[in-house]
Amino acid sequence: MPEHPTATHTLESRPPAASVIAECLRTQATAPPCSAGARFFGREPLSADASPWYRGALGELEVARRLTALGPAWRVLHSVPVGRGTSDIDHVVIGPPGVFTINTKHHEGRDIWLGAKRLLVSGQPTDHLRNARFEAKRASQRMSVAMHALVDVAPIVAIVGARRITVRERPTTVFVMRERELVGWLTALPPVVPPADVARLVEAAAQPSTWHDSPSLEPVDVAAFERLRSEVARARSRRRGWAAVGFLGLLGLLPVAAMLAWISLVGLIAR
């Protein structure tokens, strides 16, 4: 599909996870910086308040990466501001089978239990299904107004990083799946929307005014988030290095000089 002349002012150019990245960076900016000693020992650089936003951003970025495998007949919009406040829809997917909203949930290493009306994370109830239905209903209302015709929108909950998903019974109104299943599931659906109508849907969905009463697409410092990711990765590598050194030291297999050399090497590799 050809690029719109105003693409830079539409949602087509909005980076994935824009809202959560902005909130993560804003929250992290209030945290005191780590000292040189803390960095040497691999102290976690993320503040407690920024950590949930950081994990959320990683989840949305992973889903966005997966969705790039959709073919040219599909378009994906990310971090779509909706309503009147600061709410957003993680991903809006438009293609031959129709329109979908994706609510991404990053539950790395957690156990998920899915029933017809409930989704539990490590035994704790969540609002994932209710929120996904609400997002799709909201998207349908907004798109229908923009298109001057009824636009059905199907809600998806994408689970990122879960250790196990136990399905007791699948919900009838929300599709729940792992992030790695998204592309295969979407592309297996039968086409019901002609290409010309897909193009019209994309054109309407790309306009911020379709979704938000007072649209404003503030720039997001993606580079700053990538620097934060690198800092987190370096700290994690250093902690692992210290753990390995401590284990070997307990066994009496690593002299002090070798221990220090090992830590220095870990720091260099993590850079």
Rank of each mutant, 00 (worst) to 15 (best):
V193P: 04
L77Y: 01
G59I: 10
A139R: 03
L119N: 06
P194E: 02
E23G: 11
A223M: 09
P190K: 05
H91N: 05
P32W: 08
I89L: 08
E12D: 11
H212R: 04
A146W: 10
E23W: 10
W185T: 14
T27S: 15
D152S: 14
G123N: 00
R234P: 11
G95K: 00
H4P: 09
V266N: 08
S87A: 14
V192C: 08
L186T: 01
F134T: 12
G249H: 14
S209R: 10
V153Y: 03
A18Q: 01
R168C: 09
A132Y: 05
W74Y: 05
S35E: 02
L268G: 07
A154Y: 15
T210E: 02
R180T: 15
E3S: 09
R238P: 07
L46T: 01
E135L: 05
P125T: 06
V183Y: 06
F40S: 10
V220E: 01
W211C: 02
V193T: 06
A132F: 11
M147C: 09
A235E: 06
L77W: 00
M143S: 04
L67G: 02
E218Y: 11
A146Y: 09
R55L: 10
Y54K: 02
V121F: 03
V160W: 05
F100R: 01
R168S: 11
L114A: 09
V198N: 01
L253W: 10
E231K: 13
V183D: 04
K105C: 12
A206S: 12
R180L: 15
I112R: 02
A257K: 13
R66H: 12
A235F: 08
V198P: 00
R110W: 10
L248T: 13
L11E: 04
S87L: 12
P155V: 07
T68Y: 00
R14W: 02
A244P: 08
W74G: 00
E169D: 12
D152E: 15
T104V: 11
L260Y: 13
W242N: 12
I165N: 04
I112L: 08
E44R: 15
I89G: 01
V151N: 01
V245H: 05
R163G: 08
L201Y: 04
V80L: 08
M259S: 14
L186N: 02
I21H: 06
S144Q: 03
A206C: 09
G85C: 05
R200K: 13
C24I: 07
K105Y: 02
I94H: 00
M259I: 06
W113N: 13
T166H: 08
P5D: 15
A149T: 09
P15L: 01
G109N: 04
P155C: 11
P5T: 12
D88V: 05
S47K: 06
L268F: 13
L265D: 09
G83L: 03
L70D: 00
R75N: 08
P215N: 05
P255H: 03
A243Q: 08
E169L: 12
A149H: 09
Y54E: 03
E169H: 14
P15T: 00
G95A: 00
R43H: 14
R118K: 14
T210D: 00
G267Y: 02
G56K: 04
T10L: 07
H91V: 05
I94N: 00
H91K: 00
T27R: 10
I102G: 07
E231H: 09
